[in-house]
Nucleic acid binder design. Structure first.
Lengths: 339, 339
DNA sequence: TTGTATGCGTTATCAT
DNA sequence: ATGATAACGCATACAA
């Protein structure tokens, strides 16, 4: 690979001039610029980004730290982030943490070592709690999850409201005993639990500890939790899940238990996935505006990279409730179907 | 951030010694090493990876270039690749190309500029055709798709065989008029078409051009193609799709047309996704060993980074046929269900 | 075993 | 407007 030095030589100028031409392009005669460009063409010269980064103390890489790219929510976020990054000349370092605080810490370290321009991060509660005591020399945008006492741009769903709406929908459709499965590792799970409890209380329904499960955001965990719920002496009539992975597990469990949806067990959850509309009945969900979330997060980050002094913003988006068959009203009395 | 120079000073040694301690750790007295380590601790020193990369002319970053991370196949591959990379001290640069040769070329350029250690690449046919005329100063492992006249480690499914098996399964179950939707941008689509045609011919069935659609690997494309197939004067009895995205679209189209699966229209395809087992009837598919594919690709790459002279390997894996309800035998005559 | 000095490929400062 | 040169942080050849 040709270096800037060789370009300078074949163009008959100094490396400084070549650099000027290629960077800002100011203060250089058109004729000289021409010669430089020709040399660049001829040698197929490409600036070495590593050297440039070392010298300029900045880079065009942004880190994306999420728990698992296979979670449809993060799959979608990742795609958008990469899109925006690409459009703005940035490149994306992908990091999966599996909700492991240790891995989060290691990746955060890596971000320092590698001199990234900034990071988009969806931290565990554990990491979120310790973040305020740390200093970073790059901006971090929090996505999906909140971090207390930490000045950072943040993009969130209004989780309390969304879960409240979801639970209220169930209640309005006649469900009274509503089990729930929340993520235990993230602030998101906590907030959604709040919304769920709010809805119950407001409608005079009891909040039962045995109806509330906390799990990792994983299919198997959802399956296990739903199974446990169904095995209760007095099982719930509906299950509310807080992410698509546990929702998937819960659906599998309901099927495995040979219960019919929604007569024997209703099911609602978060996140639009390919299958919520393909299964029958289709699943009632709160769709998160993943495109918007990712887009805003990436844009906030890139803005802050450009202007580190800009005051942090917190963007809170609203989910969209899609009412579908899995939570259809319970029919009782005369028009109830024969079981 | 403390630099190696500061560490050297506070430890009372030269930067060379610090570097030695931190790199191989050879040829240095235990006592001195101790002093250095203490200084490192005290200053919270971390080596600057950019500087290290510039100096050593290598890096710990590998590029992953795929068409779309949202394609479940690539989602899965990406996760495994990142896992293996992490375990081996590498980091992953994620690149989506949208089957766009231009974007592929840009990303390949970026890989050069950024001095990556290697790349895992799933190229379009267009790029694959021009790759043999290019030189890269980093190893590339091809995944999912073949590249002619290019010496590179490659990890593939036996696509011809898999599609052959899938089509044969349909034929054995009594389906004679089998439509198909193949990806038009990749070698994979072509190979699967071969297997499909082989199966038809071998069973004395005609290969009809109007039954074969070529599309982008996208849900909407699958929907459109399946719809076109169903609108044919003499529509097929079954549709074979070559990836999960078009399969999803095809299923939507079949539902929209109010046809019942598999009586009015059978459906089979590639790739295990959450929903193939959740929809009813569940979908017959060839499951690709995505974990294995990603793992082997990452391992081959890392091996080659360590030993560039190792002869290239081509690993061809076999898909697994999961027979499910969407391709259940056609019943005719006495035991046919009332329509 | 340890230190000195050089260079990796840029960009930026300071002359000219 | 252009060039010489230093510096970014590190690793290594060579000398001691």
């Amino acid at each position: 690979m040709a270096s800037i030095k060789e370009v300078a030589e074949t163009a008959g100028v100094s490396t400084a001039t070549v650099s000027r031409v290629l960077s800002h392009g100011q203060h250089v005669r058109p004729e000289v610029r021409q010669r430089v460009m020709e040399a660049v063409e001829k040698l197929h010269y490409r600036p070495n980004l590593v050297a440039r980064s070392l010298r300029s103390q900045q880079s065009n890489t942004i880190g994306l730290i999420v728990s698992d790219i296979r979670n449809p929510f993060f799959t979608s976020i990742s795609r958008v982030v990469e899109d925006i990054a690409y459009a703005q000349g940035f490149t994306v370092l992908l990091c999966n943490t599996d909700e492991d605080a240790n891995k989060e810490s290691i990746y955060l370290q890596l971000m320092r070592d590698t001199n990234v321009a900034g990071v988009i991060f969806s931290p565990t509660r554990q990491t979120a709690a310790s973040l305020s005591q740390q200093r970073f020399d790059f901006p971090i945008v929090m996505v999906d999850r909140v971090v207390a006492d930490f000045e950072a741009d943040t993009v969130l769903l209004d989780n309390v409201e969304a879960a409240y709406r979801l639970a209220t929908h169930l209640i309005n459709n006649g469900f009274k005993r509503i089990g729930a499965i929340f993520g235990e590792t993230s602030s998101t799970g906590l907030e959604r639990q709040q919304g769920y409890e709010q809805a119950l209380r407001q409608h005079g329904l009891p909040v039962l500890a045995e109806y509330i499960k906390h799990t990792q955001p994983r299919v198997e965990a959802g399956y296990a939790a739903a199974t446990a719920l169904m095995k209760l002496p007095h099982p719930p009539e509906a299950i509310l899940t807080s992410n698509s992975l546990t929702m998937e597990g819960a659906l599998q469990a309901i099927r495995a238990a040979n219960l019919s949806l929604p007569e024997d067990m209703a099911l609602v959850g978060f996140d639009e996935t390919p299958w919520t509309m393909l299964v029958q009945p289709s699943i009632t969900i709160i769709a998160q505006p993943t495109y918007e979330i990712g887009k805003i997060a990436a844009e906030l980050l890139i803005q802050r990279i450009a202007d580190p002094s800009r005051p942090p913003r917190q963007v809170i988006l609203r989910g969209q409730l899609h009412v579908r068959g899995s939570s259809a009203p319970l029919r009782t009395g005369a028009d109830a179907p024969v079981r």
